[in-house]
Design a protein around this nucleic acid. Structure first.
Lengths: 108, 108
DNA sequence: GACACGTGCAACCTTTTGGTTGCATACTGT
DNA sequence: ACAGTATGCAACCAAAAGGTTGCACGTGTC
């Protein structure tokens, strides 16, 4: 049952959890207050996120604070890289077109 | 059954499809040759990708060429933006730490 | 027109997903 | 030690995902 990071961020609730703990480490209980589900459901999401190493638990007394492993997010960025190249290339081409239009206009 | 772009890229086969048609528009048949599934399964993936507007079909004779809507990929980039800010900030802080260490060392 | 080809869609099936309830465990404070 | 709090885990369930097979519908080719 190995999930990759893309499956991890596929679920809206998990993305919301990520957004919340990006600001500050939070406990499952505190997180659950933000959603219309049970604490256990949130716990399951945290389990998945932890397995993907997107999130790290840290025990403090009887509470467990979960924090975001921001480095893991870079993997998505790395995957996007190849496509970013494409759209930047197309933007450059668009730029050339615009320059071409401008040139044409100035020649009028 | 409305899927968002994050669910669309969650499936490995769909990411592979995206990677293939990023290079050049392809037909479902041609795509299916690259996977160990039936043409119909690929067709279903293409349907999902089309619904998310990640992919656009173009009929040419009796073939349909699917091409990547690169602009849609920017949505992922936009989502990542908030986290990129975080890791860049932390990197800066790391930089300060390094500078601090260096300074300390030179004072020895 | 007849036929092959390329494709999408419906029906069906199995596995996975996301959720719930109930319970066991661990730490706190009195 | 005991009550209360914070949490994870197992069992169960409904819905969704991903796959397959069979079929219908256009479009080219002869």
């Amino acid at each position: 049952m190995k999930r990759d990071i893309f499956q991890a961020i596929a679920d809206p609730t998990r993305r919301a959890i990520i957004a919340l703990i990006a600001l500050q480490a939070m406990t499952p209980n505190a997180l659950a207050e933000n959603f219309h589900t049970t604490r256990q459901a949130v716990s399951k999401h945290l389990r998945i996120l932890t397995e993907c190493e997107l999130v790290t638990p840290e025990q403090r007394g009887r509470e467990i604070y979960y924090s975001l492993e921001i480095d893991k997010m870079k993997e998505i960025d790395k995957w996007l890289e190849q496509y970013r190249k494409i759209w930047e290339t197309r933007f450059d081409q668009l730029g050339e077109v615009l320059v071409g239009l401008k040139k044409k206009k100035s020649e009028e």
